[in-house]
Amino acid sequence: MSPPVLSVRNLRVEFPTRRGTLVAVDDVSFDIGPGEVLGVVGESGAGKSMTGTAVIGLLEPPGRIASGEVWLQGERIDRLPPEKMRRVRGRRIGMVFQDPLTSLNPLYQIGEQLIETIRTHTDASPAVARKRAIGLLEAAGIQGAARRIDSYPHEFSGGMRQRVVIALALAAEPDLIIADEPTTALDVSIQAQIIDLLKTLCRDRGAAIMLITHDMGVIAETADRVAVMYAGRIAEIGPVRDVVQRPQHPYTKGLMGSIPTLEMGGTRLTQIPGSMPRLTAIPTGCAFNPRCNAAFDRCRVERPDPMQTGTGAVACWLAARAADEADPANQMHPTRMAP
């Protein structure tokens, strides 16, 4: 297997506040391979956007990476000085945010913004850069790109603007795209187009994608692997088919059951009682234990780390116990407690 494009190791993001330190991202590790789409899914406050922001080094102070490492193609980037990090962003990591209107400068024509990006990161001449900008817009599905390149962002519709933002993210041919809720602000019929576009463009160019979204449907359509986040930690990670169809973590199971689907019709939705804990009050032990209907003593005192389960990993004592029962010699976890 080829070395990963992005490798995040034990990432921890803290926010020091007057009332103590809040941990927004806690011990998160994952890899993204070349051309791979990793979906990061979770509800509001799960820490998914914070993970993305930490990777590109755009945490708003007082937020900071407290520990852990971020490697981009074998180079550690979490400790780069701001000036060097700025070169990494845009050149080697492209970004697509939720709201296409705020990601574009309303005072500049989209062509200027694209050409500026291309020329910042490559030594193309203005004419070459303009040609490439038109090519990018065409690849992003904007018809009449040569004419529309001199339009301002407000002259485009929401879907078209998101295409421009994607073109902008791809301008310097980055190795990794971080897309944070790229389709959330768009209508369903436009959403499908944008997902298709993001996927084909990255496949053609061999770029990896970290796709952050709350929408499991988008993940199922797009991602190769998926990481499910809960209260700042990865609850479960694995190939998308396994996680969607055979979820192992009780949270993932509840989440999947709570999504209305076209196939299921009018049956009652599964309910997870309660809601995601606030960062100020994360329960001890497994953060999900107060809402989990299968929690046992151990879940309330000891925090589970992700444990390998064949194709993926799941942070749940139930899975550990099941594996123990299947194979008593299995040493999946360091500390063993009486059941």
Partner: peptide, 23 residues
């Protein structure tokens, strides 16, 4: 068209037509 655009969560592989155009 709207039905075709809904993401296929069940991964049933139901055939989908590409959605064209904008509102």
């Amino acid at each position: 068209m709207l039905l075709d655009a809904v993401p296929d969560l069940a991964m049933s592989g139901r055939p989908r037509k590409k959605v064209e155009g904008e509102i």
